[in-house]
Design a protein around this nucleic acid. Structure first.
Length: 552
RNA sequence: UGGGGCGUGGCCAAGCGGUUAAGGCACCGGGUUUUGAUCCCGGCAUUCGUAGGUUCGAAUCCUACCGCCCCAGCCA
């Protein structure tokens, strides 16, 4: 259990709700099924589900599926799985596509009331007519086409009688508005694509600004929480609901209020679906659940837990500024949880053979090792101590740097949970490469301190014969600069060494049959999770995060 | 003078006219330790983008200035 605090830090959204009369708090998490969820979504999920739960309200999971070109069943299923995995339960599973009929009916009403019209300008012309940030736009010549004509065209668009781009349905607001979103925004475009849910029923699809607010209103959402970039859309959000309510349609609409919060930014990675799609499609990573990805599925495979991700979201807070969070925060939450829950094991990532010459060839002493140094209730496991063991290559230095407390020629070191050994001889091949180390052990040091001297170093080890050969994947940050987007092309900032595969690692035998997803601390090295690729014949471990290291 | 937002220590973030300006991460000590881990103890903003003003009193109110972010998809 992570130290998930029960005293939630105050934030402006909570304060706002506290000041409001005690009404139900109804929220929604509205992803478009066009990719996998990432940490930015986790922040939104924790906020939406968390705040509703806190005020005894409810939350819908709604798929904002109005652009069939980019959406799929696969993405939809992945999103559902990830939200559930994070530990949240939705009240209703909704789809914007379920409202297509109602939405169309509302659009017809808006045309009739003179609040919408079919424009027949081309996309380029519309862009020109829109004006610029500093100059007002000008009205389309089709803007005052009568309602009957617009209605007829809209029906034809719906019936598939026109080609994509020929016409578009726009709201009639204000082409001179200083808010670009109010310059007669498009609300329906002709698109003859197959929709993963509605199939080929529709030839026109509603756009976000029109769909989102009405979906919220239809579901009875009270608090529509979204990120800062939608701040400018709020007047439009309110305009649409007001106009539809004033129209003759018999769709029952609530009165949702949109509130915006700052999006999550994380150092050394990118959090935008468009860019994550690119990383996947260009093969820069191995799929959406590549453990280097900031996706929920990637983090899960990497060894993160739902608790640690929720704790991360709690710690970063919710404000109106776009914060850039340091990786250290993410690393800390998962270390804190795994330190409590993960059983300890020994594993040698880059083996160096040690022969303990003072021990007989057939020596096979069974050691009983605690699974957790501070939690005896987690029990113990057995590990054979034999004449030949592997230690980490980096735990031996012929010419040690200052303050090196590991094995050196003539020096002593403790084999973790075992005996103190002394390095007597370094065996090299004809090229001068170290092949093995010959040591002798002090038989009187099992479970006790050596007499008359102190041995500072403790290193991990595994028996040569009984250890299990395994592949260990060590991950580093995906990008080599904290702000990859500051690069001309962010792909230039991809870290070429973000994955290091150690294919000759040795695990202590008790890990051999651990199931996929199991998490351990490999002592002195970090936290590791058994990967999906792992099999009994070929175990594969992912390093979730290293231990805090004040030495190297 | 397009419009909309945001500026509290290296990174987050409380604070809402009277507090010694919470807390976390990071960092720096010191102690314990058969993981250079954990754990423990201590340190870490006379100051809240800047400059003025209001007030007995300002991070909190006002004014000006500076900096950063977002907006011209028939994406969401």
């Amino acid at each position: 259990m992570a130290s998930e605090s029960d005293t939630a830090t105050s934030n402006f959204i909570r304060s706002m709700i506290e000041k409001q009369a005690a009404t139900t708090v109804a929220t929604r998490f509205p992803p478009e099924p066009n990719g996998y969820l990432h940490l930015g979504h986790a922040k939104s999920i924790c906020l939406n589900f968390g705040i509703a739960k806190e005020f005894n309200g409810w939350t819908n999971l709604r798929f904002d599926d109005t652009n069939p070109d980019k959406e799929s069943e696969e993405y939809m299923q992945a999103i559902k799985r990830d939200v559930e995995w994070l530990g949240f339960n939705w009240k209703s599973l909704c789809y914007a596509s379920d409202y297509f009929d109602d939405l169309y009916e509302c659009a017809v009403a808006l045309v009739k009331s003179g609040d919408a019209y079919v424009d027949s300008l081309s996309a380029e012309e519309i862009r020109e007519y829109r004006g610029t940030l500093k100059q007002p736009g000008k009205e389309s010549p089709y803007r005052n086409r009568n309602a009957e004509q617009s209605l007829e065209l809209l029906e034809e668009m719906k019936a598939g009688k026109h080609n994509e781009g020929d016409h578009i349905l726009r709201l009639k607001i204000d082409m001179a508005s200083s808010n670009m979103n109010m310059r007669d925004p498009a609300i329906y475009r002709i698109k003859k694509s197959h929709h993963y849910r509605t199939g080929d029923k529709w030839s026109i699809y509603p756009l976000y600004d029109y769909t989102h607010c009405l979906s919220d209103a239809i579901e009875g959402i009270t608090h529509s929480l979204c990120t800062l970039e939608f701040e400018d859309h709020r007047p439009l959000y309110e305009w649409v609901i007001e106009k539809v309510k004033a129209s003759s349609v018999q769709v029952e609409l609530g009165s949702p209020v949109q509130t915006e919060f700052g999006p999550l930014n994380l150092e050394y990675t990118v959090l935008s679906k468009r860019k994550l799609v690119e990383l996947v499609q260009k093969g820069i990573v191995n799929g959406w659940d590549d453990p280097r990805m900031p996706t929920i599925s990637g983090l899960r495979r990497r060894g993160f837990t739902p608790d640690s991700i929720r704790e991360f979201c709690r710690r970063i807070g919710v404000t109106k500024s776009s914060a850039v969070i340091e990786m250290g925060v993410l690393e800390t939450v998962v270390r804190e949880e795994l330190n409590e829950s993960a059983q300890r094991r020994m594993a040698v990532l880059e083996p160096l053979k040690v022969i303990i010459t003072s021990i007989a060839d057939d020596h096979n002493e069974i050691l009983e090792l605690a699974n957790h140094p501070n939690k005896p209730e987690l029990g113990s496991r057995q590990l054979p101590f034999t004449r030949e063991v592997y230690i980490e290559q980096s735990d031996f230095e012929e010419e040690p740097p200052p303050k090196f407390k590991r094995l050196i020629p003539g020096g002593e070191v403790r084999l973790r949970s075992s005996y103190v050994i002394r390095c007597d001889e370094v065996i090299k091949d004809e090229n001068g490469q170290i092949i093995e180390i010959h040591c002798s052990h002090d038989p009187d040091t099992l479970g006790k301190k050596p007499e008359g001297r102190k041995v500072k170093g403790v290193i991990h080890w595994v028996p040569v014969e009984q250890s299990v050969k395994s592949e260990v994947r060590v991950y580093d940050r995906l990008f080599n600069r904290p702000d990859p987007l500051a690069e001309e092309d962010y792909l230039n900032a991809v870290n070429p060494d973000s994955l290091v595969v150690l294919s000759n690692a040795r695990l202590e035998p008790s890990i051999g049959d651990a199931e996929t997803g199991s998490k351990f601390q490999f002592e002195r090295q970090g936290y590791f999770a058994i990967d999906d690729d792992s099999t009994a014949e070929h175990p594969v471990c992912n390093r979730t995060v290293g231990l805090r290291d004040t030495w190297s």
